[in-house]
């Protein structure tokens, strides 16, 4: 997705560049949601710097890609809110994103295992 190349300041170099996408797809796979609710959840999932403008643009872009759909939901207690749901295309996107994350995890696990092995060896050889 070219519209959202990651949210500045939200990853501190620790999260994948497009981590917001699987987060949103997963949250919507769990059930329909609203903008502010999604914002709260993605912050709890590690994207602490997520801000409403970026989320809004990301949701719009995902809607154009037909990964999510949305409608205005009137409320008795307050103004109408936009409700977002995952589409079938979005579910496929989630599966692909998760597979991609699994691949990254494999690479990281390999690196960490080698590091641990090296550390153990280095520790054992110390007097």
């Amino acid at each position: 997705m070219s519209t959202m190349s990651g949210l500045p300041g939200d990853t501190n170099g620790t999260l994948p560049r497009h981590y917001l996408k699987p987060c949103l797809l997963l949250l919507l796979a769990e059930g329909p949601s609203h903008g502010y609710e999604l914002l709260e959840h993605v912050r709890r999932m590690g994207i602490k710097g997520a801000e409403p403008g970026g989320l809004y643009r990301y949701l719009r872009a995902m809607e154009k890609e037909e990964m999510v759909s949305s409608w205005w939901e009137p409320s008795q207690a307050g103004p109408a809110r936009r409700t977002y749901v995952l589409t079938e295309h979005g579910r496929k996107g989630l599966n692909e994103s998760v597979q991609s994350l699994r691949d990254v995890r494999e690479i990281l696990v390999t690196l960490l295992d080698r590091y641990d092995t090296l550390s153990t060896r280095a520790g054992a050889s110390r007097p």
Partner: peptide, 11 residues
């Protein structure tokens, strides 16, 4: 739409 969205989300 931006203004309605902000209004609806209480932002």
């Amino acid at each position: 739409q931006v203004l309605y969205w902000l209004h609806g989300e209480g932002l």
